[in-house]
Amino acid sequence: MEYQSCFDIIGPIMVGPSSSHTAGVVSIGKFIYELLGRCPQEANIVFYDSFAETYQGHGTDKALIGGLLGMSTDDPRIKSSLECAKEYGLRYQFGFAEGCEYYDHPNIVIVTAKSGDEVMKAGGVSLGGGLSKIFMINSEMVDIRLSAGDNFTALTRQNHPRRKRLMEAI
């Protein structure tokens, strides 16, 4: 059962236009931001399948960058996150591919983020309705459910011990 809560269905409160291609992707970016503990300096982003075909129309690029900068799904700055990235000192690069070898879903993004000496590669899937999942961190397969409807402050707190554990595992 991927969907657990009424707020997985009613919500998130978000900046449009797409819960899977905008909001769910903000959460993936934000998770990486939380995992690093700060905004990365470099990000190499690969969009697959539906993301690769329609990212411009849905603002998927703006959503991911917004998340990497620490923004939440309802942050109006997402609209101009590509410009914000310059101020934050984040250099990014987008790549595109048809199908992902690690996970079978049309909405996949793989991000390689660099912050100082730390480099991490995370795979995220946006399941629809603002719900997403991190399925890979570096070469390890994981299953971390992200709901944009969650209270992100609480989520951050929950993630801190997890972050430590994950970073040790890497």
Binding site: I10, I13, M14, V15, G16, P17, A23, G59, G129, G130
Partner: peptide, 21 residues
């Protein structure tokens, strides 16, 4: 229409279908 302007909406269950409910 607000959703298309990148305005704030509530996904029900998605943003693409946010107008119906």
């Amino acid at each position: 229409e607000g959703n298309a302007r990148m305005g704030v909406i509530v996904a029900t269950p998605t943003a693409g279908a946010a107008g119906i409910l």
